[in-house]
Design a protein around this nucleic acid. Structure first.
Length: 98
DNA sequence: ATGCCGGCTCAGC
DNA sequence: GGCTGAGCCGGCA
């Protein structure tokens, strides 16, 4: 598997995450043929604006939004589509997408 | 080629 | 559930 093919799989999978649901870097990675969680995180960080991918629906294994530059915007977008966060910033596990 | 660091994860405490 | 350390991975300087 070449990196570009892996990248393509990652994008395809992410684009399939339903609105109001979330998944994790590791889960996305496992759905590909060999990508790692870090590669997924990196792929998300590289996305240009207006690509149309729901990158904000991808969170870390603790079901929290990883702190980085766009973390605030990510939380806002999720909240905007109905994803609730508890007092500690964690997302309800029932919203996890397979 | 080399070395450092990461939008992470998982096993151990 | 939180903290720590390793992973043997890729991108990038």
């Amino acid at each position: 598997m070449s990196r570009s093919e892996l990248l393509e799989q990652i994008y395809t999978i992410v684009s399939r995450i339903p609105e109001g649901r979330v998944t994790t870097y590791g889960r996305v990675a496992k759905m590909t043929d060999g990508a790692t969680a870090r590669m997924v995180g990196r792929a998300m960080g590289q996305l240009p604006d207006g690509h149309g991918l729901p990158w904000h629906r991808v969170v870390n294994a603790s079901l929290k939004v990883t702190e980085h530059g766009g973390a605030v915007r990510q939380r806002e977008q999720l909240r905007a589509e109905g994803v609730a966060f508890d007092a500690r910033g964690r997302i309800n596990a029932e919203l996890l997408w397979p």
